[in-house]
Structure formats: C-alpha cells, structure tokens
Design a protein around this nucleic acid. Structure first.
Lengths: 154, 154
DNA sequence: GGGTAAAAGTGGGTAAAAGTGGGTTTTTCT
DNA sequence: AGAAAAACCCACTTTTACCCACTTTTACCC
C-alpha cells in the first residue's frame, strides 16, 4: 500500500500544529486534504497512520476475540488514544493535547516514516533513542538480509 | 543489481551539494535524474543507496514485527536519517544539514563505492579510517574469509 | 608533446517552493 | 449565549531547485 521512507526534522507551533514535510506529502501520493489516525506508540512516541492503513489494521484487530483476556487487552492497547486528524489548508495536522503530553513533544520534532506509518518524536528524545546501536543489531541484520554477502544495512 | 566499485575524491560546496563523479554516474547506468536514499552509516560515514537498492532492503525490513521490541528498534536504527535525494540538473545531490553534521563533512570528501552502495566520508576521516593497522587487517581478513583463499584485498 | 575541443566540475544569483507564525472567523460544546 | 477550540487566511522567512557562467581536467588529433 505504502512504502514510506524518511527522517524529517520539523516544528510544532504553539497551537500544536505540525506541518507535514513536502517530501512526505509527496510519498502519500496526492495533494488534497489528507486524512490520518494518530495514537500512542511505543517508547512514548506517537504513531501516525494514513487513514487507509489504519482501516486495514483495525479490520485485523477486530477479528480478535474480546472474550479472551489477552486479546481484549491487546485491542485496548492498539486503540489507545486513536484520533482522526486531517491536514488543514497549509498541510498541517493538529495534534491532540493529551498526545502531546504523552510523547513529551515540544517545538522541535523528528518524524520517522517507514513502511506504512510515521513515528513522531521530540527531537531530543529521538536523538537519545538512536544514540546506542541496538544489541544484536548485526545478528538481526544477518537474519533480515540473509547471512551471505555483506548485509550492508548501512 | 549493481556492482559498484571505486574510490572518488570530490567536493561539497557551501550549499551542501555534492557532484557525483562522472565515473560513478556511468556505473549507475544512465543519465536522467537519478534517485537515491542517503542515511547515517557506521563509523559516522554516510551511506548512499540507489533508490532501487533501498527499496529492496526496506521490503525485507518491513517484514519485521513492530510489536517485538528488538525488531522495532532494528527498524528505527536501519532507517535513521533516511532521506530521499535526487540529482539536480548538474548531477549533484543535496545532503541534508543534519547528516553533514553527523558525518563531520567539510569541503573535501571521499566516496567509496562497493557492491550496491556508496559511502561518503570527509577526506580527513577517510584517511584516518584507512590508517588502522595493517596487521590487524590481515587478522581481520583471516577471520572474515576463514582459511580459504584470500580475495586479494589490496 | 602541445594545442584544442569536449567533458567534467564548481560556484553563485534568483525565482519558486516550502515552512512558519499569528490574527480572525467559524464551529462546537456546555 | 459565552468560552474555548479548531479551521481559515494571509504575510513573511527560509530553503531548494534551476539556470547560467566560468574553471579545470580529460581526451584526441596533428
């Protein structure tokens, strides 16, 4: 559906609006008013899903059995904070206050787009998150890229 | 897909533009506007991937399970800094400021192309990197290639 | 081997695009 | 109805892409 890529530096203004970078808009194919769902992500970042992606995901989650405690818990966790947002006339989205608090966002942000989603981080916390190479990175890389020729990764 | 080779000396201008050497362009088969993805590499160099190569890699990375903490972190680390860049009318790419800082790039650069990717180094740091003890290198080679024939390093 | 034409590389001005901020109107909620 | 929040609009700043001109290097030919 999407094959998003890119790290973008951007800013949130005093009203909690984020201008989506032009490069990202371009990948989301098309101008017009774009629609997303935003919710709480792991490690206290926010996740932004194009509406179509969100719809696909909810369909899967809705298959789960709410009478099963674990699955019930997952459903709640999945939906936590989910809010629909769309771009205004200047291609900005308005982030709900509760989510701004959750992710400790301030003026300076980083967006990390991959696959079908976009993570939103405060610039500081993003830098801190990437500071250390994950353990077993090379092992995982070997698995992911096949363990023969140079995994390359980056 | 590609079998890039070569060490190229080149320059970055005050605007952060790098002219890709003609020899490299030739290997990338074709003129026209070329598209790449650049991101942070190991040892603080930058990595430049032809767009097709990047897409192939992301396809594999996107198979990972975002609900698994290790795999999630791997995804983020893999993507860190990723920015799409394409050549301008003079076959130059514009390197994002944040990546210039990361790799401590200044005017004089070295490009090292191998396999399907291109490393970008400041000339100084490239020289320093290559200075690392040759003795260690042979041990390294022995380890990497086991006791089979040597590939003829250089 | 040197002159010359072509290709490669470099630099900067400028118009257009992207990003930013804030005032004002409209909507919504109580 | 009044307050608060959201959407709209406009103006301004910053960044990027395009264009053109100039320098340097390479390749070729006599």
């Amino acid at each position: 559906m999407f094959q998003l890529t890119g790290e973008y530096e951007c800013k949130m203004d005093a009203k909690g609006r984020i201008k989506l970078p032009a490069g990202l808009i371009r990948q989301l194919s098309g101008s017009g008013s774009l629609s997303f769902v935003i919710n709480r992500g792991f490690e206290k970042c926010l996740m932004l899903y194009p509406k179509q992606v969100w719809d696909k995901k909810t369909q899967e989650v809705n298959q789960l059995n709410i009478y099963n405690p674990k699955e019930r818990q997952f459903i709640r966790y999945f939906y936590r904070g989910a809010t629909e947002v769309s771009t205004d006339s200047a291609e900005r989205i308005l982030v709900p206050k509760s989510l701004i608090e959750y992710a400790l966002l301030d003026k300076e942000l980083m967006l990390l787009a991959y696959h079908e989603q976009i993570e939103i981080w405060s610039k500081d916390r993003y830098a801190a998150m990437l500071e250390t190479e994950p353990e077993e990175f090379s092992e995982l890389a070997a698995e992911v890229f096949g363990n023969r020729q140079s995994p390359g990764t980056d």
